[in-house]
Design a protein around this nucleic acid. Sequence first.
DNA 1: TTGTAGGCGTTATCAG
DNA 2: CTGATAACGCCTACAA
Lengths: 336, 336
Amino acid sequence: MSNMKQIAKMARVSLGTVSHVLNNSATVREPVRNRVLEAVQALGYRPNQVARGLRRVKTSMIGMIIPDITNPFFPAVVRGAEDVSFSNGYRLILCNSDNHHSKELVHLNELRSFLPAGLIVIPSNFSDLTAQAEVYRRAGTGVVCIDRLPTNWSGDSVTADNEEGAYKATRHLLRLGHSTLATITGPLHLTNANDRLGGFKRALREAKVKLAPEYVQEATFDKAGGYSKTLTLLRLIPRPTAIFAGNDMIALGCLLAIREAGLRCPEDVSLIGFDDLDFGETTNPALSSVSQSGYQLGATAANILVERIKGNSDPPKHVVLETSLTIRSSAARAPN
Amino acid sequence: MSNMKQIAKMARVSLGTVSHVLNNSATVREPVRNRVLEAVQALGYRPNQVARGLRRVKTSMIGMIIPDITNPFFPAVVRGAEDVSFSNGYRLILCNSDNHHSKELVHLNELRSFLPAGLIVIPSNFSDLTAQAEVYRRAGTGVVCIDRLPTNWSGDSVTADNEEGAYKATRHLLRLGHSTLATITGPLHLTNANDRLGGFKRALREAKVKLAPEYVQEATFDKAGGYSKTLTLLRLIPRPTAIFAGNDMIALGCLLAIREAGLRCPEDVSLIGFDDLDFGETTNPALSSVSQSGYQLGATAANILVERIKGNSDPPKHVVLETSLTIRSSAARAPN
DNA sequence: TTGTAGGCGTTATCAG
DNA sequence: CTGATAACGCCTACAA
């Protein structure tokens, strides 16, 4: 790999001049400039990112910490972030926290020594990142939280409009004539799970539909959680005729449990999920779901970071992305 | 962030000594050594990875180039790679090639300037990485190809036993009494797609079952590909009673097309996929599929890389991972 | 407009 | 066993 010294020699200029034309840090006369550019071409020179990072005290890498890339909601988020990072000259370092705050902290701490230009994090359970983010901020490194917010978060954030999405889904159920509704939420210490519950409750309140506490079940954001809590719900009297699931994985568990209980979806119990993951199209019945763009979540976060890196120091941004209801066949009119 | 100079000052030793205790590059007397370690503790020192990388001409990052993290087979691969990388002190830089060889080359070229310790790549379409890999190899950087092999690849590789997996699936179909079989393959210039076709053909040959060329359809590795080629297959006379799909995404498309043609799976046409992705459990009918571990694919590759980094210079390794048949309900006895 | 030189934090070589 | 010191490749005052 060639370096600036070789370029300088070949172009018969000094090292500094090479740097100047490469970074436009000083106007260099055309002929000289051209000689440098030609040498760069000839040697296939590319700046050594590591040396540059050391000198600038900031590399062109963006750290991304997510719970688990294996969870089907996250790949799109990562892709969105990677795309805008890449097109702005940044690379993504991917870290999985498995939703453990301790692992998240390890990543946060260790990533610092890589001098990333910024950080995108989907907080783990019980996350409080105030202290760590402050360390980064002091080093001039932006941190943006997405999808859910850690406690006390006051920095940049991008989230979906979870409350509104849940509200729309619940209204849809209500309009279909359901009056015994239930919900299986994600872990309620997660802001997204909690906001969705809020939207669900608001819709019921507005429709003056009662909600007994047993009809709200908290689960983990996965199939197993949805499955077991659905079994619980289906034993209730009166049995709910509609379930709003905190996300599609939970909804998948619901579907399994409903089938196993010898009931039919949507004839006996209607179901709406959240996230609108790909598999929803091909479940039986096809899953109605609140659609949010994971891609946009990641892309928006990366964009904010790029702005911050460029020097934007506006007060923290809190972007809230729209959600919409995708109607398929898992929600139908309430049985009499 | 503290640095070695501060450690040295606090421990009243020279910079070099600090380096020696940190890297065990020389035996340092207990008391001195302890003073250093204490200072490290006290200041919460962590080596600056960027400076270290510059000096060593090698960072502790592993580059990973995959087609698209959004394709449901790849997240597990990435996770496997990330896990063993992380536990060995390496971080993963994730790049998406979208299966374009040109984008893959851009990544390959640009990643060099980050001085990665190694590279894991799932080759794109029509990939020939010989030249690039040679450049890396000369720099002492290992490159391991996984899942499918680029043309002329002679370096380290990890793949699934695609031929054997396809063979098992086809045998299963044969044993169920099918005699008019068809397959929808992935793009046949991809080694994995081609190997699967090979296994399919071998099973038929051994069973002395004829295979007319129209019963082999090549498609892209996705739902759309499976859908349109299934429509083609179902128009054939005699209509195939069993389809072996090149992967689960294709199988999903098959399912849709079969349904749309007014036929039933598995009563009218049996179906087996490849990859055994999560959604296969919840399609209707649940999808039988050849199971391969994406996680192992990634983890094994990372392990090879770690060995190479440690200095292992054995001849290229070609690890082939086992595949197994997961039987669910999409394949049944042939209709009379 | 161009060149010079110091230093970013580490590691490695080589004296002592 | 420990300490100086010179790189690694790049950027940026500052000088010329």
